[in-house]
């Protein structure tokens, strides 16, 4: 087995744009669930709204990159409003049900054949990333083994993660964040102290949703294509895995969680493939190995929940009273 390859591919995953996208989306979930207690099981929907909002406004309306970015953020805010208005007055579980359904509705709508001209149906949309790469300040060449395009998207993706983390950290240490955490603990108590709980929950839902939309764009730009199949329910659950791995009410938790998630996936895949190729494992095909690694991620998550339920960065003391 080529250990060099195993570790270099795992290390590559650490800073891949996809990991950055997962980190952003999981950070959105941290704002939703970790800080505000909002159960959002439709983060994939927010990502899809972000990605499609960007792609459609670029391709159908030919708007420049930053306008498309703005449209995408606006779309996800509207999506959050739409989900929040009927459900945020109800208990947390209602939001969970509605978000699952809404994410699926988004996916089915963009897959509809009647909308092929706009959404590209099941094939999705492609060739909308030109405006983004046109801004690339890095001349062609090799940057740490990457071409200038790959390097640029990594810089932007991880730059965005850093900026968003700082913003979320600033927000959560502020009195505004304190009210959110209060709502997570007991919203009636917060209400009795004169805070407009509904407005706070709505703001949190929108902020987390916008983080999801940004994640959708970072996810889709390096691929140069947006396809409905990428935004299924399993994406949401991978994001929850990242969040739980890292620690829920933390800023760095979701980022580290996303890194762990992808490194574990990459390591298990390379190791299993290596073992199969070298003939050490004969009872497994490479296709099965691809599936087995998700099972292993599930097992890792279970072990983590049992032995370190607060996640890597979580505060054990907070859990002592759960």
């Amino acid at each position: 087995m080529d250990y060099g390859f195993v570790f270099s591919s795992a290390a590559g995953e650490l800073f891949s744009p996809t990991t950055a996208a997962y980190a952003l989306a999981a950070l959105g979930l941290a704002v939703h669930f970790g800080y505000s207690g909002l159960l959002n099981f439709g983060q994939a929907g927010f990502m899809a709204v972000g990605a499609y909002g960007f792609a459609i406004s670029t391709l159908s309306f030919g708007v420049p990159f930053f306008v498309a970015l703005l449209i995408s953020i606006l779309c996800s805010s509207l999506f959050a409003l739409l989900l929040g208005i009927p459900t945020l007055r109800l208990r947390a579980d209602y939001l969970a049900i509605v978000t699952i359904a809404a994410a699926e509705i988004v996916r089915y709508i963009v897959t509809t054949n009647q909308l092929t001209k706009v959404t590209g149906s099941a094939n999705g949309l492609a060739a909308f990333e030109g405006g983004f790469y046109a801004m690339n300040p890095f001349p062609e060449g090799s940057y740490m083994g990457m071409n200038n395009r790959d390097f640029f998207i990594r810089v932007i993706g991880w730059g965005l993660v850093v900026v968003c983390c700082v913003i979320v950290w600033l927000l959560m240490r502020s009195p505004w964040g304190r009210v959110l955490k209060g709502i997570r603990e007991d919203e009636n108590a917060v209400r009795s102290l004169g805070k407009n709980v509904y407005a706070y929950k709505m703001q949190a839902l929108i902020i987390g949703g916008v983080l999801g939309a940004l994640a959708g764009m970072v996810f889709t730009l390096p691929r140069g294509a947006v396809q409905p199949a990428n935004y299924g329910t399993e994406l949401t659950f991978f994001l929850w895995t990242c969040l739980l791995l890292g620690g829920m009410a933390t800023v760095l938790g979701p980022v580290i969680g996303a890194m762990i998630f992808w490194v574990v996936l990459s390591l298990t895949q390379s190791v299993l493939y290596g073992l199969i190729e070298s003939g050490a494992v004969t009872w497994l095909t490479t296709v099965q190995a691809g599936q087995l690694r998700y099972i292993l991620v599930g097992v890792a998550l279970m072990l983590l929940m049992i032995f370190r339920p607060q996640g890597v960065f979580g505060n054990k003391k907070e859990l002592a009273f759960a």
């Binding site: 009195p175 505004w176 304190r178 009210v179 209060g182 997570r184 603990e185 007991d186 009273f321």
Partner: peptide, 24 residues
């Protein structure tokens, strides 16, 4: 109803009115 995972001090601060920082 106390906010269990907030400190006693944070619970108290939460009660205060007119904190501009509570606006987003």
């Amino acid at each position: 109803k106390v906010m269990g995972k907030l400190t006693v001090m944070e619970n108290m601060r939460l009660g205060a009115a007119n904190q501009p920082g509570e606006r987003l």
